[in-house]
Computed example of a mutant assay.
Amino acid sequence: MKKFFLAVAIACGIAGIAQSAQAAGNVESASKSHMSGWACDPNFPGYQGQVMMYRDDGLWIGTAQINIAREAAVSNACGGGTIHGFNASWDLDPSLIDNKNHYVHFWYIGGQEIELTSSRRLMGFCNAVLSPSGLCP
């Protein structure tokens, strides 16, 4: 009986990984207080979720609702539908200013949480004037 439950657990895990690989999206613009782009799960093209931004230390930075119509190429990448875009701004929580550079990660939140591929970005969370690259000196 234990082997049966282990087999089911492994099968569910593999199915979850296979579904995660289906996420699509692109972060077109991002800063400590803004993000825009598109995201979806082609398995559920009509579902409008959210995109959340987290730092490499696990701290949440901001959330964008997926609620903007996008072009046909995005619709094709998402398996249909038109509402896959996001664009949001917020006031940065002052407690996030630690005068360090952090990688930020973007997660599509739909039926499951899926990190957007190739969306990791390095950003400075500092009080000092940022360099042209946006990093702390």
Rank of each mutant, 00 (worst) to 15 (best):
M52N: 14
A73W: 09
T117G: 07
Q19T: 07
Y103I: 09
E113A: 08
Q48P: 07
A15L: 13
F125M: 07
L6W: 13
N67F: 08
K32V: 08
V8R: 10
I61Y: 05
A21V: 08
M52R: 13
L92K: 09
G46V: 05
I109M: 07
Q65G: 05
H102R: 09
I109W: 03
K3H: 07
R120E: 12
S33L: 04
K100P: 01
S119F: 01
F44R: 06
R70S: 11
G37Q: 04
Q65W: 08
E71C: 11
G58D: 13
G81L: 02
F44P: 01
D56C: 05
G13Q: 11
D57S: 09
L116N: 08
Q112L: 11
G80K: 10
H102L: 07
G80Q: 11
V27Y: 02
E28K: 13
E28N: 13
I109N: 03
N43E: 14
Y108C: 05
A73H: 09
G13I: 02
L116W: 00
M1V: 08
V8E: 13
R55W: 00
S119I: 00
S36N: 14
A88K: 00
Q48A: 13
C78M: 03
S29H: 15
V27G: 03
D57C: 04
N26I: 03
T63R: 12
A18T: 02
P42L: 10
C40E: 00
I83N: 06
A30W: 08
D93T: 03
G79D: 09
E113V: 07
G110Q: 02
A72N: 09
V129P: 15
A23F: 03
K32T: 13
I83L: 05
H84G: 08
L6P: 06
A30V: 15
M53G: 04
V129N: 14
L59S: 15
I66P: 01
G37I: 01
I61T: 14
A7I: 00
D98R: 06
S31T: 15
V51W: 02
W38R: 01
A88C: 06
G124L: 07
N99Y: 03
K3M: 05
S29Q: 15
P45C: 10
L92R: 03
Q112F: 12
S133L: 12
S75L: 01
F4M: 09
D56K: 04
S36K: 10
P137Q: 12
Q19E: 14
F106A: 00
M123E: 06
C12I: 07
W38A: 05
Q65Y: 07
W38Y: 15
A23L: 05
N87A: 11
G85N: 04
A77I: 00
G79A: 10
N67L: 02
C78V: 02
V8Y: 11
P137M: 04
A9H: 08
S131Q: 13
A69N: 13
A72M: 08
N67V: 00
F86E: 05
